[in-house]
Amino acid sequence: MIDLLLRDLKLSVRAGGGALIGVLFFMTVVAVIPFGVGPDLNLLSRIGPAIIWIGALLAALLGLDRLFQTDRDDGSLDLMLMQEQPLVLTVLIKCLSHWLANILPLVIASPLLGLFMNMNEVAIGAVMITLLVGSPALAFIGAVGAAVAVTLPRGGLLVSILVLPLTIPVLIFGVSASYAAVEDPAPFLPPFLILVAITMFFSVIGPLGAALALRNAGD
């Protein structure tokens, strides 16, 4: 299993910089916001955590529909489906490697964007931590969409539409926790812990659903 993780990491490093594109997309989305709402620093610092979360959400879903596509195109997916080891585990590993290679860079890039949005240190730290904890859930939910996309001739956009409504809870609690860290009366821990719970819940449901879809997608 560790071999699969290493192989997928190697592939994403060698094959055309998917992580770089994701980070660029993330930065571009966040960078166009001030042009829309105006350069008012107070306003930007107020909406900053939400904007960064939304940007990260979109960027995380950007490359996700390809999660199983390349393995299907060259036939590797067939061999993975045949094995004795549970497919759920294979899917989980693929999600983790996707997260490490493509989503973790977004989390690392988020403080820089926080500076652009005139957020203070606490807010930047809170956004980074909530992203770190919440973004794996995005990968797990997206895996279901990616598994569905395998069967579609032109899947990409449809998958994002299918997956986005399911990510709303992650967004709500991620942003709530980020704001709670800055604004005084709201406690930080409850939304943060719920975010952790959501991630753990999806780490089970996501791979299960994706494995089920992959098994049923054979043609």
């Binding site: 071999d3 699969l4 192989r7 190697k10 592939l11 060698r14 094959a15 195109d73 060259d74 036939g75 590797s76 067939d78 061999l79 993975m80 045949m82 094995q83």
Partner: peptide, 26 residues
């Protein structure tokens, strides 16, 4: 073993890496 029309090997990895991966994965 199943060898279909497609080779199930990754173009970006070296031959050794490909074979070693399948050896341990399978």
């Amino acid at each position: 073993h199943y060898l279909g029309h497609r080779n199930a090997m990754k173009m970006e990895l070296t031959v050794r890496e490909n074979l070693a991966f399948w050896q341990s994965f399978l």
